[in-house]
Structures are given as C-alpha cells and as structure tokens.
Amino acid sequence: MEPFRQHTGLVAPLDRANVDTDAIIPKQFLKSITRSGFGPNLFDEWRYMDHGEPGMDNSKRPLNPNFVLNQERYRGATILLARKNFGCGSSREHAPWALQQFGFKAIIAPSFADIFFNNCFKNGLLPIVLTEMEVDHLFNVVSATPGLKINVDIERQVIEVPGAETYEFQIDESRKQSLLNGWDEIGLTMRHTDKIRAYEATRAQREPWLFC
C-alpha cells in the first residue's frame, strides 16, 4: 500500500443515516472476480436514473441530478461526510473498494459498522469518527462554503477546516503506523510465524480433535 500521511480535499456531504453496503455497491456488481472497476457503480441506485447492470457504459447513463455526488460543487470530492452507522450490512470489501476507486480517501461519520470500518483500513481508506455534534457542525460548514477543502492529518490526528475549528480524532496506534508506512498487514503478521507455530502446538495438545 501507498503510505498515507495527510490529505487535503473537497468534502461531499451524504446526509443519510444507516447507509448500507448494498447502497454503496449494489450486488449485481459483486460478481467481478477482480479488485478494480467498482468506482463508476458506487451508490449506483442513487446516482443514476436507470437500473445499472455490469457491462453497461456508465458514461451514457442518465444521472440523478439530486444526488449529492452529481452536483457540480461536489465534483472531485475526496472526503465523504456521512451520518451514523455508515457501512452497515455485509462484510463485502467491494464497498470500500468502490468508495476508494471513486476517489475517496477519507470518510467522516459519527459511527461506522464494525466490519466496514475494519475493511477500510485494509485498503488505505481512512474512516474517521467524530462526535454527532462535530459532524453536524461540519455538515453546516460544508453546505455554507462551496468549494470547501479540508485537511486530514493522520500523523497529528487532526482535521483542519479553514476558517473554522480543528477537530481531533482517535486512531489505533498500529493502524496509524500501517497507514503512515504503507505496510502490508500479512507481511507484518508473518514476522510472528514462530509464535503462530508454537500456539498451534499447545492448542493441539489442549484440543486435539481440532488438529486430527
């Protein structure tokens, strides 16, 4: 993975709670056997007026003008501002892939579904939890300020909003180091190969039926 230290970008507000993984990427697009190509179908049912299927030429499809990501002022947004329980539903990593391939680098919300939250980090997409009040405040600032760009700094764990306050956020130390250094998690775990083998040996004694 690419190291990810900080990012400055345009914010798009998605003002809905409980945005689920089926909405983020509808299931007809999950049949792909690769990791790429999901961006054009992000939020497919909200973004387009017609029903999308794999293989369609998305550039020819009618866009829903009311959907936030289709509005001119949010073109090129790289930070998504969302409401509570974002990413609920399935464990499919296709959801963070789609968000990332659309161009998002970070998502800010008052809460995330656990599996989705976890999946984001595995792909270098940063989910940031702020309080309900802070998120409310950001929604107001964003709608009042066309073209607003904010800066997310992972090293210092802050979000800087020009002309407004700075928000601090929490992140696990190991996740932070992995993002900052672009580490491959499997590679990191492999350093513990001996420990894993030793664990297996004790476990095989204690619960032999699992290892026969």
Partner: peptide, 11 residues
C-alpha cells in the same frame, strides 16, 4: 472482508 480472507489463508 476479502483482505482478511487472504490474511487468514496466509497466516
């Protein structure tokens, strides 16, 4: 998620 599927398979 799929990254974890890979992680479990490998380690």
């Amino acid at each position: 998620g799929t990254s974890e599927v890979e992680h479990v398979m490998a380690t």
